[in-house]
Write a protein that binds this DNA or RNA. Sequence first.
DNA 1: AGAATAGTGTCTCTCAGACATTATTTG
DNA 2: CAAATAATGTCTGAGAGACACTATTCT
Lengths: 211, 211
Amino acid sequence: MTGILLNVHVVIFSLREDALHVLLAPAQGKNWQLPAAELKPDEPLEEAAARAFAGQVDSRLAHLEQLYTYGEPRRDPRGRLVSVVYFALVPSNAGQASGKLCWFRMDSLPPLAFDHTGIVTYALHRLRYKLEYSAVGFQLLPAEFTLSELQHTYEIILGERLDKRNFRRRILEAGIIEKTAGHRTGEGRPASLYRYRLDAVAEVKARRLFP
Amino acid sequence: MTGILLNVHVVIFSLREDALHVLLAPAQGKNWQLPAAELKPDEPLEEAAARAFAGQVDSRLAHLEQLYTYGEPRRDPRGRLVSVVYFALVPSNAGQASGKLCWFRMDSLPPLAFDHTGIVTYALHRLRYKLEYSAVGFQLLPAEFTLSELQHTYEIILGERLDKRNFRRRILEAGIIEKTAGHRTGEGRPASLYRYRLDAVAEVKARRLFP
DNA sequence: AGAATAGTGTCTCTCAGACATTATTTG
DNA sequence: CAAATAATGTCTGAGAGACACTATTCT
């Protein structure tokens, strides 16, 4: 291995104040970059990915999957760097950033170092795509949520309005959530709380939720 | 980089004698393994992947995409090895193997070294999945083909029979192939030849062909 | 009472899936 | 003319998408 470096980056998404956010670390100059970790000799890749933001975000990790491996020869001017990039979701009720990491709105990202802008864009593509055929959307919400909150989450990520009745019909017919006893009170009529049915994960992954 | 090795593996599929085949290289003992290449310091990952079977298969490369990066600490007993695995398709009219590489039927693979059996299984999943929503199927055929040959390709990969009329309707309505002047004569009525419409690639990738 | 949000049903149109017969060539 | 393969159309059922009003709570 003549001078080829390997590391792990993570694109971490969360919903904050009605907008999709990404967690970034300060880089050279005024730039920012994706949180990274060196791979330890005896550590699985996923663990290195989790380490990239461990202790910086007070949240259990809701979702972590490999995104892509970037290895263009000149992507980092400091040397040949191959990065295995992971993609993570953090529920919106957690994820207060501490340390040097900061949340940025996806629709107004700061300048990013190296090829990180392209990586974040691709991660958003993946998130939108997976939203349509799997149950990742729930990973951005707390354990209990209302149907309006769920719809709102989908709308923010997809960037488009969805029909309330059609949304509810499809989500409920898919059988992946169930009503709990609780209600959320607020400004108008209180809303029923729902929870994600863990036993439904497997079957949902097979079929598209939104075709 | 304390003792972490990085290389590139390739899962190469082709259709031969009415069955899906994978290209393998001899390994320790009676085992076989996926063709591999060391990453050169100034070489893109794709190029290393292509190098893993360059000169061994007399064919232009029809399709090459990154599959996944495997990096479990104990996957290779000789040391910590991270492998970026690619996935390739070779048209059935080309791809005569030479050198040490051999084609094996997917339904009767020899014992594979390390975690390569799992990798090949995952690659087949990906191939089947992509067949349903993109145009990769055409990459396994020569430039001109009959609709029966195309359907046959789909049936072999998906492992199930398809209805002839429904298949033709969907393929033709998708507008991704066009009739050429030629015909293929053989035992029965001669069949019209079709070719893949290059300008259709982009739009097809967006929508599922087989839902 | 008014403002705010939750919750609910129908119709239409497109498309997937099942299904059988005729057409053209070769030996 | 027999065998082989190519080519073609219809019906039905499921599901996506468009669409508007009633219900419940809070102030």
